[in-house]
Design a protein around this nucleic acid. Sequence first.
RNA 1: GCCGGGAUGGCGGAACUGGUAUACGCGUUGGACUUAAAAUCCAAUGAGGUAAAAUCUCGUGCGGGUUCGAGCCCCGCUCCCGGCACCA
Length: 939
Amino acid sequence: METRKYSHREIEAKWWQKWRDEKVYEVDVQNAKKPFYNLWMFPYPSGARMHVGHAYGSTGSDVFGRYKRMHGYDVLQPMGFDAFGIHGENYAIKVGEHPWKLMEDLCNRFRDEQFLRIGHGYDWSKEVRTYWPQYYKWTQWIFLQLFKHGLAEKKTARVNWCPSCKTVLADEQVIGGACERCHTEVEKKELEQWFFKITKFAQKLLDDLDDMDWSPHIKELQRNWIGRSEGAEISFKVAGSDHTITVFTTRPDTLPGATFLVLAPEYKGLSDLVAENKREEIDAYVKTATAKSTIERSEAKEKTGVFTGSYAINPVTNEKMPIWIADYVLSDYGTGAIMAVPAHDERDFEFAVKHGLPIREVVKEDDSYVGFVLSEWSKDFGAFVNRLKDLNVNFLELDEDTAVFSFDKSILKKIVDIAKDYVAKGSWHDFVGSDLTVVFEDGEVYHVPKYEENPKVWARMCTLNPDLKASFGGIWDMLLASKYQNYGKVCFTGDGISVNSELLDGLSTADAKGKVIDWLEQKGLGKKSITLKLRDWLISRQRYWSAPIPVVYCDKCGVVPVNEEDLPVKLPYVEDWKPKGDGKGPLANIPEFVNTTCPKCGGPAQRETDTLDNFLDSAWYFFRYPFVKRNDVPFAGPGVNDADNAKPDSNAFKRWLPVDLYLGGAEHAVLHLMYTRFITMAFKEMGFIDFDEPFKKFFAHGMIIKDGKKMSKSLGNIINPDEYIDMVGADVLRTYLMFLGPLAQGGDFSDSGMSGIVRFKNKIIDLVRKSQEVKESDKNLESKLHKTIKKVNDSIESFKYNTAISALMELSNEWAKGQLSKTDAEKALKLLAPFMPFITEELWQEFYADKNSETFVTIHKQPWPEYDESKVIEEAIKLPVQINGKLRATIIIDPEVVGDEDKIIKLAKDNEVVSRFLADKEIIKTIYVSGRILNFVVS
RNA sequence: GCCGGGAUGGCGGAACUGGUAUACGCGUUGGACUUAAAAUCCAAUGAGGUAAAAUCUCGUGCGGGUUCGAGCCCCGCUCCCGGCACCA
């Protein structure tokens, strides 16, 4: 057959232009009948081109959108650019261009040279760019709403300062003590800044997660980030003064074991507690400690600290507790002060050992959980050793009363069984070896690693059990001589039974916590309390390329918000926009911007010169897309604009939110995704919307790496999708990327596998062409087609596009050997359309489109093929036959007799191989799983 | 250290609810076509075993367990990836 040439360059350009000109993917938000909001995280341009990672995620989203569109949904797939803010500005500094011009150029290029060519069904008529004034006007409007509702406030706090980016950062934007953008180590500074009160919603942010249809690991990351800890606040009286010190602890049950208090060097009110003769020493310590960075502090090998000279009183024991300051206590978690319980906290323990502070044990490990050797080893000892010798157990006798064993873990079970005999006989209560400690309690087996690896456990065992210490004197002495000697003292951090605690004695940790909290509440000394790691969202930035915070400072009226009708507060175009690092934003140097009049009294006033964190821009952009044409409201919802509700179209508007499906990278789990949830909750609280969560479903796609490493500019291993689009076409690149593995997993980019996709594409072209004259499909091939429809449906819906593609490849392999009718070939073509939008359009237009149609009709809006179970032929089943679980034969059975167990057993027994294996054997049991497997259990 | 996720041929990965492990693709080898190459097509391809076979043995990171039967479930490890990290 003569084959027409399909140049991917030609046809791909032809179709994306056609789609654009015919507005194929534009959605009428007001009149859409079946809305589906399909969102992918818009990118931020921080380089010259998009890389293949963007192509991967966006294709993953587009495939789903196309699938839904062919199911008759009005799929809104908008796109825009998160081009305001620090990442773009840093790039502008690097290339030495003004961000206004640079961002406009970059975004145009991303859109026109990359996104359009890759064949995504984006509705560009709803494009959003966060730096456009018509967009950031509403970002500022949101700030004003939060301010008016008490969700934004200006306060002084110790904040993160990035010396390289020359701005403050939110906690979420500090990764491992370094700036999220430039990886410079951040400093802590005490500054007055604007915050959003995200902590107000902490509990809701946590609770909602339980029922949300989000990738589970993302939910877990958010839970960890919120970091909820339940415990108690306890107040301690300072001896000889009116002061009290309040601490937070998750272990109020250990209060009787608290032997000293430790305050952070930044503790407020510290100077009131310092004894005169200690003042100099303390000042010096505070000075060195605060000069250290967070990283330096956490990496300190030794726990340093200084005694203040003051004492607090332990309310349970009435003993004096020295008050120390030490930099291992963090000022910005809890109350900045702790009660130290060295017996049950490793850090306190280390500190106590170093500074010679008392250690009081108040929790004992529950004996019913771990027990030790109690009885005489001599009893049945020799017999036991003999039995172990047969098992290759290394036996080492330290002295006549002390025995150490080592053995391979593989024989643990056998040793346990032997030892159990002795336990059963009453000879021993437990069994201990040097490799393992095996404890039987109600048949349970516990296991403790080698003492060299876990000396703490051994030290604890010996301390808690004097008998053990006596019988293992050798090991005990070795421990004391070793580097682990510090652990010779008890430091048990788990739950157990309270001891030495008077009112709590004998209670389990959980009960003791409850009881001590009741006791404290009665005495007015404390209460149940919850502490979070999550802190309020710091939104001030001392940078140029962002939306100015819309407030002014008036000498008379104080902090005054800008009137809504005066928005946007425009970011002035200036030549000198680079950050100075003086703690003020570049806007502070522009008098025309700074000097204004007070919106309230009309008097002279100064504008706020900090700008908004760009994460606010992206925290609400999905609200804007459907309503981007509306300049009167940011988005439509019940409370946004009452007048709007009077319009007949308002309901149509509202149907688009929340977003049906959001796809994006996991790297935004605690930044962007937490902020979007907060803003949505704030909108709800302010009455603008009537739902709590922004996305019905969120799916995290994986990352594309190169040779096992992240793609990065510094490694120079960034893959540009453009060259592949040139070389093999967007259809092949898309399908190749989706074929790498499940979408959640990402993949390692290597172009070696791409040739398989090229072959597959060419094969489909040939097959569709050859089917044009075929009137009727082969029955078995039609059956395969319908199985494929089902498989493709299931695979796409669970984002396992790789298996959808492999199912289509299987179909093509069989199709090459048989005939599909012209109509069935169209079905196959449609199944491929989400992956290869261009070639499927080309073929469909050539062979299937109505040439007389006046309007343009596209394959991408054709109905998706229906799965017809009646077309699926039940083929003869190859039934595996096992004997004792081993495959011995497969028998071919008619699908009609699948349910007839007796007949199948007979058939199996007639099989030559089976009968050979069954000869002379007694069948004990026969297991038949209908149509799946037949297993004979024989003697 | 803590919390997640993972480990399957030479490679990327399949495998329904515990039921024939390695689908699909790449690569490799051999063959056809060709003057030749590319492209295309056909065949083989987990390891061992054998003259060749075989439903002969072994095989889903390691050691155990449950089960007629385990890649999948349970217990204990190792390694890799991601996140958090002196968070009381």
